[in-house]
């Protein structure tokens, strides 16, 4: 992955930064539980990645690197500041935060949410409305009442939406 004369151009790096900055901050926050610390950690990781001249073949490769790098930087941060009893107040104890499962859970939440959001946004407006409410746990009747449409219409929007969502997901899977 690391090749000296083969680094990404700054423009490409900026694109990766734009795509990953917010999700990585959200992710860091799951370790350090503080917006400002999260931003600092993520920025530092980006600076280091740039200085090393890393090359990523695609966005997945970049994500693979940055998630792990941000996790490590967050844990290092917690270890250093914990002892000095600065204001850090992580969401869980360090043993739990260091587990692989904690890492998987939090990355999957971010990645799967992004997939779901993206697919929902691509639905026609009425379908989208219905599906958002449905995912929030409302029943068909509750959705019908809320949107002032019939129960049958809700069902038909949902069926259309599921068809399209499945199609979109199949599309997203293409390597």
């Amino acid at each position: 992955m690391i090749e000296e004369n083969d680094r990404l151009s700054l423009g490409v790096f900026e694109k990766i930064f734009n795509r990953l900055y917010s999700p990585l901050c959200l992710f860091a926050n799951k370790y350090v539980n503080d917006v400002n610390y999260s931003e600092d950690i993520v920025q530092e990781v980006f600076v280091k990645a740039w200085e090393k001249g890393l090359y990523f073949e695609d966005l997945d490769k970049a994500k693979g690197f940055f998630y792990v790098a941000v996790k490590n930087a967050s844990l290092n941060f917690l270890k250093s500041h914990y002892s000095k009893s600065v204001k850090a107040h992580p969401p869980e104890n360090l043993e739990i935060l260091q587990t692989e499962n904690y890492f998987i859970k939090e990355t999957v939440i971010l990645e799967a949410s992004a997939l779901v959001e993206k697919a929902i946004e691509a639905l026609p407006p009425k379908c989208r409305e219905v599906m958002k409410l449905s995912f929030e746990g409302l029943t068909n009747q509750e959705i019908a009442n809320k949107l002032g449409i019939s129960f049958e219409t809700v069902k038909s929007y949902k069926s259309d939406a599921y068809k399209k969502l499945r199609k979109d997901l199949a599309h997203l899977r293409i390597k």
Binding site: I104, T107, V108, E111, A112, L115, V116, A119, F135, Y162, L165, R166, L169, L172, R173
Partner: peptide, 11 residues
Amino acid sequence: LSSKVADSIFK
């Protein structure tokens, strides 16, 4: 795993 999760949500 993420696409499995999204898939089960869509289904």
